[in-house]
Simulated scan of single mutants.
Amino acid sequence: MTESRRSRATFAVLAVTVRPIMNLLMSKQWSDAGKLPRDTGFIVCPNHITEIDPVVIGHFLFNQKVTPHFLAKASLFKVPVMGWILRATGQVPVDRTTAGANRSLEAAREAISSGGGIVVYPEGTLTRDPDLWPMKGRTGAARLALQTGAPIVPIAHWGAHEVFPRYAKRFYLFPRKTSRVVVGDPVDFSDLMGKPITKTVLDTGTERILDALTTLVADLRQEAPPTERWNPADKHQKSTGRNFENRDFDQ
């Protein structure tokens, strides 16, 4: 996916407008950016704690001269203004139909082959864990890595949720918060490459990604993670949407 002139121009405009806003909203503590691959395309796997996560991760990657491409819900491309920006910057719509999924995979492959970073949230949506730890993941990132051979780089962040909490309706600007981002080592998939892409292989790869992310988040928070990863299905929670709690179950 060679960046088009329109994509480069749109990113330039966003850099001029969005980066100063992000710098005003939060101070930055970024570490281990040197672990980002520079000689190949790669898959970025961040934790997901608030709706402004993509802006935080996009800001970080762009500052490291990595053009960020996100796998984003197809419905977002229909939102006025946002949809135009997503299309103009070459973001990848995720369509759950078979044909749409194939197009998404091909676009992701192009982004990787061009040397860029394709961002895939392994949890699939905002974490349902009450304490915002990484929850049980979905297998899309592992599948993409196994199909392309691209390295998976976990990137954890913490602090943006204090500015805009999960599913909030307003920003909390004072006192000024700090956004902390750390890059982890690529997740080791060497023993999985070349194997048939079965459910067992995908689940194994996904758990490795979430284990790496959880370790990074624990380091940022200086807290011990839970011994068992949160599974929305076990808690009778919906996998998508704001109103994910099962009120009858809670009672």
Rank of each mutant, 00 (worst) to 15 (best):
A108W: 09
A108G: 11
A108D: 05
E110R: 15
E110I: 00
I112N: 07
S113D: 15
G115W: 08
G116T: 08
I118M: 13
P122T: 04
P122V: 08
E123T: 06
G124L: 07
G124D: 03
G124K: 02
T127C: 09
R128Q: 06
R128T: 04
D129E: 09
L132D: 12
W133A: 04
P134L: 11
P134F: 07
M135Q: 15
M135S: 13
M135L: 06
G137H: 07
G137V: 01
R138K: 15
R138F: 07
G140W: 02
A142L: 05
R143D: 01
T148M: 10
T148P: 13
G149Y: 01
A150E: 08
P151H: 03
I152C: 04
V153H: 00
P154A: 01
P154L: 05
P154G: 02
H157F: 03
A160L: 04
H161R: 14
E162Y: 11
E162I: 00
F164P: 08
F164R: 05
P165F: 05
P165M: 05
R166T: 05
Y167P: 07
Y167T: 00
R170H: 10
R170G: 07
Y172R: 15
L173M: 13
L173C: 08
P175I: 03
K177C: 05
K177H: 14
T178W: 02
T178P: 08
S179T: 14
S179G: 13
R180Q: 14
R180S: 15
V181E: 08
V181G: 05
V182H: 00
V183E: 10
G184D: 09
D185C: 05
P186A: 02
V187T: 11
V187S: 09
D188G: 05
F189T: 13
S190A: 15
S190W: 12
D191L: 14
K195N: 08
K195S: 10
P196R: 06
P196G: 00
I197N: 06
T198C: 03
K199Q: 14
K199W: 00
T200K: 14
V201L: 06
L202F: 03
L202S: 11
G205V: 05
G205H: 07
G205W: 06
G205M: 11
T206D: 04
E207A: 13
E207R: 14
I209S: 07
D211S: 05
A212N: 06
A212Y: 09
L213E: 08
